[in-house]
Design a binder for these strands. Structure first.
Length: 333
DNA sequence: GACTCGTGGGT
DNA sequence: TACCCAAGAGT
């Protein structure tokens, strides 16, 4: 990036950067554990959604050794509602690897970070640059949008990904790559937004090819998406003596490793009653799940959770909504 | 490279 | 309403 534009970007960042719980204040040294935790939470997830989870995790598990010592089920439950639950399992695996094999010290090179569970190209680069001051090429969706506009890249995503990476590499300074990356991300988040970008406030508008053409909203070009199929399913609310039957879902697949209501196969041979349905939208399909409710006269050796404390079970959102319906059915009965 | 994998907010 | 989007990773 031309020196003038780079300086303008960094000056803008120095004044207008977001204050975030995981960001070191001026003069503070960034904590690799907190940087790593925030980066994993922020994968495909908004800052607003992450904030309360980050506060809860760092209060409960202040250091990587604390997280490594936690039962996986506790971490999964604490992650409930944040989505993409493979991240939570990888989070525990990564913490245990760092605490157990690396003396509790996060690696400071991209290659070594990349070898940790749940740490891909973006996250390894972000940690190396932000936590350790390394030069690394940090490309997230914000940077892709900003760079695609700066250079008016006509090639569509995701095919353009390597080109955008190379362009970002050329822009990234030898020193201060962490601030550069965070400046680009804040720019994308607050000014160079997907719709109605605020070019009048943009510190690098002068070098923006898309802006020069008045076509900033046309970038990044994206490949058309597939239609989202609609599916249907059944969940079961089976209660006995103030408890409801839950299951631990298999580690692989949708909502893997999470507690949930039984689905597909009825957990008991009892007369089931319809209790409505819940519509829920996942990334790649929309689901309508019916809820069948019943009372059991006995308690098998599965998981039975006290209904009064169902909100503490750590159910993913779909099942939390179904459980709310089940509780309502119970109150009405 | 295509596909899977959540959720909530904005428009 | 329906669609878009988000500090992506793993298979």
């Amino acid at each position: 990036m031309p020196v003038d534009a780079s300086n303008a970007l960094l000056r803008w960042y120095a004044v207008d950067k977001r204050r975030l719980p995981w960001r070191a204040e001026a003069g503070e040294r960034p904590d690799p554990y907190r940087i790593w935790l925030s980066e994993v939470m922020l994968q495909q997830t908004t800052v607003a959604a992450v904030r309360p989870y980050f506060e809860a995790f760092t209060s409960r598990w202040p250091k990587v050794a604390d997280l490594a010592a936690a039962p996986e089920a506790d971490v999964m439950a604490a992650w409930a509602g944040l989505g993409y639950y493979a991240r939570a399992r990888n989070l525990v695996a990564c913490a245990r690897k760092v605490a157990g094999e690396l003396d509790g010290i996060f690696p400071d090179s991209e290659a070594a970070l990349r070898a940790l569970p749940g740490v891909g190209r973006y996250t390894a680069a972000a940690i190396a640059a932000i936590a350790f001051g390394r030069r690394a090429v940090v490309v997230d969706a914000n940077v892709e949008r900003v760079v695609s506009r700066l250079f008016a890249v006509e090639e569509a995503l995701p095919g353009a990904r390597e080109r955008l990476y190379a362009l970002t590499d050329a822009l990234t300074p030898e020193h201060g790559a962490g601030d550069f990356a965070q400046a680009m991300m804040d720019l994308g988040s607050g000014i160079c937004t997907p719709r109605s970008p605020d070019c009048g406030r943009c510190p690098v508008a002068a070098i923006c090819a898309a802006r020069a053409r008045g076509e900033q909203e046309r970038f990044p070009v994206k490949a058309p998406k597939r239609a989202r199929p609609r599916r249907e399913g059944v969940a079961y609310w089976l209660e006995h003596d103030g408890h409801v039957r839950l299951v631990r879902r298999p580690k692989q697949g949708l909502l893997g490793g999470m507690l949930a209501l039984p689905t597909d196969d009825a957990p008991a041979e009892v007369p089931w009653r319809e209790a409505g349905s819940v519509d829920h939208v996942f990334t790649h399909f929309a689901l309508t799940m019916r809820l069948l409710c019943a009372e059991s006269d006995r308690r098998d050796d599965g998981i039975w959770w006290p209904i009064e404390r169902i909100d503490e079970a750590g159910l993913p959102t779909l099942f939390a909504r179904l459980a709310a319906r089940g509780s309502a059915w119970r109150e009405a009965a």
